[in-house]
């Protein structure tokens, strides 16, 4: 089975905890080499974030656990890249 090297998630999260905390925590997951969290829209109580994770081989479940612990929900998985190299990069 191919290893996951890139993943883009569409996430709905409360304003607090901040994306800074969440990005740091996601960056500490085994196999993750880079994390980018971008706020796409802000509502009164929640915000939508696009989370891009790059690594050598990481487990989606570990990421999901952290995201949920921060009170956020994954609305959709928008992109996944597996294999020896990331297609289109």
């Amino acid at each position: 089975m191919g290893v996951v090297k890139l993943m883009v998630l569409d996430v709905l999260k409360p304003h607090e905890p901040s994306i800074l905390d969440m990005a740091r925590k996601l960056g500490s997951v085994k196999g993750v080499e880079g994390v980018d969290v971008t706020i796409m829209s802000v509502d009164r109580k929640v915000e939508t974030a696009k989370i891009t994770i790059e690594g050598t081989d990481f487990m989606y479940d570990s990421l999901l656990k952290i995201i949920n612990d921060y009170g956020a929900t994954v609305k959709s998985i928008d992109r996944v890249s597996t294999g020896k190299k990331v297609v289109g990069s």
């Binding site: 709905l12 999260k13 409360p14 109580k45 009170g71």
Partner: peptide, 17 residues
Amino acid sequence: RELERATLSKLSETKIG
């Protein structure tokens, strides 16, 4: 409860809870 309605998830077992 209000935040749970907005995020569509249970928050009691999260950092927020």
